[in-house]
Simulated assay, not measured.
Amino acid sequence: VMDGAKPQTVESLRVLKESKTPFVIAANKIDRIHGWNSEHGRSMAESMGDQSKEAMGLFEQRYWDLVGQFAEHGFNIERYDRVTDFTADIALVPVSAREGEGIQDLLAVVIGLAERYLDEQLTDIEGSGEGTVLEMKEERGLGKTLDVILHRGSVKKGDEIVLVTDDGGRATRVKGLFSPRGMSEMRDAGNRWDASEEAHAASGLKISAPNLDGVLAGTTLRVVHNDAERAEALAAAQAESELSIELEEEGVCIKADTVGGLEALAKELNAIEVPIRMASIGKVSRRDIRNTEAASNPLHRVIMAFSTDILPDAITEVESSEAGAKHIGSDIIYRILEEHEEWVEQRT
């Protein structure tokens, strides 16, 4: 509410618009408006009726600023309690994450829209399982595991699954299946996982299986039950593993934690005519830095990493690089582009 649409917000809007993804706006930090009386856990509908005219006037000013900023990007937004057609207007819910005020309103809007417009996807629990691999982790006592969001069908211990790797499709079998304990979220579960025999959509789970090396985060996991399904899934996995990024003989190197992230970064670089020589998934390694140093153009001796870390030995390699290799990393693409532009300006 206070800062308006920041560059990262604009970047997210562009991605959402291009992918035609529905969304709701949470206008956070409503409690920072001068004179706003916040109450922990209160609904926003109740809160707005309990504010002074001055506080509501300041809120309306901020709100109309947001309306104008979103309109510049082709979006019509309306306060959630005033929306009459959710297919024409995007709901904006004022909230205070700090006080928990308005959170119930936000959840009500999201759940209501999901039940109204995503009914078919939410009830797609029959048939072969399909999910998205979030990341691969090394777990003590289990070895390599996959954190997965199962969004269709079911999967059980012993099922054959087809995964997308950097070498194409690969079939393996589920050795262990684990669900977050109680109300724990996957990202916060830590070691709080319970062994399961079967999981149904939609749910988050951890899978242990042999031969998980090279599995790409952000790609599809498919459960198969016969030769025909396996052949079809392997063909789909092969196609998914082939990055739709045009590489040049000379250019920069890029890395990301998922296929989607890598392609998003590549798209932005293509838009500003920055050539790409190498593109891959995973953390930035020492080998990546050495490949970066091999560029003949000094301005191409840079590796840009979106939402992925750089390994300690790679940091040492950058610091001691006689070729002037540069690592630029961030969880926000526009910051990577800004830092790259500044680096180029310093070297020209």
Results as ranks from 00 to 15, higher is better:
E250Q: 10
Q238W: 11
E240M: 08
G260D: 05
N226I: 07
S241C: 10
A239N: 09
D257S: 09
E232A: 10
N226E: 08
E232Y: 03
A235I: 13
E249F: 15
E232I: 05
D257P: 05
D257L: 05
A233E: 00
E250W: 07
H225N: 14
E229T: 01
A236W: 03
A233R: 01
G260P: 04
A228P: 13
E248T: 13
E248L: 10
A235C: 13
C253V: 13
K255W: 10
R230D: 01
Q238E: 15
I245P: 01
A237E: 02
G260Q: 07
G260K: 06
E242A: 12
E249D: 15
V224A: 03
D227I: 01
L243H: 07
V224W: 01
E246K: 14
L234P: 05
E246V: 13
H225C: 11
I245D: 03
G251Y: 00
A228K: 12
G260M: 07
A237K: 02
E232H: 06
Q238K: 13
E242Q: 13
V252W: 04
E232Q: 12
E246M: 12
N226Q: 11
E240L: 08
H225P: 11
S244E: 14
A256L: 00
V252S: 02
G251R: 00
Q238M: 13
A228C: 12
V259D: 04
K255R: 15
V259L: 09
L243R: 06
E249T: 15
S241A: 15
S241D: 08
H225A: 13
A236E: 09
E229M: 05
G260Y: 05
A256Y: 00
L243E: 05
A237G: 06
A233C: 06
Q238G: 14
V224Q: 02
A235D: 13
A236R: 08
E249A: 15
S241K: 07
R230E: 00
G260H: 05
E232K: 07
N226M: 10
V259E: 04
V224R: 01
I254S: 00
K255L: 12
I254A: 02
S244W: 08
V259T: 11
L247D: 08
D257K: 04
D227G: 02
A228E: 14
A239R: 09
I254Q: 02
H225R: 15
E240F: 09
S244G: 13
E240Y: 09
G251P: 03
E240T: 07
E249K: 15
E250S: 11
A233I: 01
V224I: 11
V224K: 00
R230Y: 04
E248V: 10
E249L: 15
H225Y: 15
A228Y: 08
V252K: 01
E229W: 01
D227M: 03
V224Y: 00
I245T: 02
I245Q: 03
E248N: 14
L243K: 06
I245Y: 03
E242C: 10
N226G: 08
N226P: 06
N226W: 08
K255N: 11
C253K: 05
A237C: 09
S244N: 15
L234F: 09
A235K: 15
A235W: 11
T258D: 04
I254G: 01
K255E: 09
E246Q: 14
L243F: 12
A239P: 09
G251Q: 03
V252C: 06
V259I: 14
R230H: 00
K255Y: 12
E242D: 12
A231M: 06
L243W: 07
C253Q: 11
S244V: 12
A239T: 10
H225E: 14
H225G: 12
C253E: 09
